[in-house]
Amino acid sequence: MSFMIAGSLEEALTALAAGARPVAGGTDLVVGARQGKAPLPTSLVAIDRLAELTQIEPTDGGIRIGASVTHARLLTDPTIVSDYTALADAAALVGSPSTRNVGTLGGNVMNASPAMDTGAPLMVLGAVAEVQSERGSRTVDLSDLWTGPGQTSAKVDELCVAIDLPSRPARSGSAYVRLEYRRAMEIAVVGAAASVTLADDGTISDGSVALSAVAPTIIEVDGVAELMAGHLPDAVGAAIAAAVAEAAEPISDLRASDSYRRHTVGVMAARAVDAAARRAAGEEISVPVNRAIGVGASR
């Protein structure tokens, strides 16, 4: 058994190469161990204090979010809220204030829950993960990173160090909507993120939709851009809902049946497209959409 608080990224990568597992907020790792899902690793390296991993910084082509940036920070960061709003919507729904204070974006991504809230927003925003080891650094598309429930294609010595997002087109907006039975400490029954770009005449020129909790991983829905292009946002809801229900491969569990999930994820996707289009048109819809427009659990 060993525990180390990494003083530098190099130190963390060396520890990982020697077999340690990373811990940041511990909200999945420690809770999972206490629930008996998986024993606590025998060797841990804490990465939550590494300055390299806690920055949100502009890049040539967009923005780079360090893996140890917390949900609390995402939901208040001015750039995330204004330009990458779906990610702020999702961060605001995670757990409770205490979860959001220590839980990190990198932890959410690498825990690879199919019900994670930040995953669908990251997909529609075109994110890639930067993973690093002593052997080098590489970027991975999220669709290649997530391989199953709790499974990623990252090697055991690789650390997710950042999430890179491209800059947003003009007249674009995004939103994440979650079906929930309660307002805090909730896991998505289903969730949907949408990104919409509008043409000058108010019709949709481009868009994408990704889904939570309806497949073994977060999935992006094929053909959404073609389905929406040239139409006014008001006119696409039913077609989006149908395409999404078709793409979903939900399971039944204690939170919902497969048929309920298949139906409601279509409803959530249509609402996410609507909210994203309204934001693209310049309407202020506060974060998170769930509270602003009364989706999900009421009081």
Binding site: I5, V23, G26, T27, R34, P97, S98
Partner: peptide, 11 residues
């Protein structure tokens, strides 16, 4: 605020 039940003392 942090849930101390899921926070490692060493951290």
């Amino acid at each position: 605020p942090v849930n101390s039940c899921s926070y490692l003392a060493l951290q």
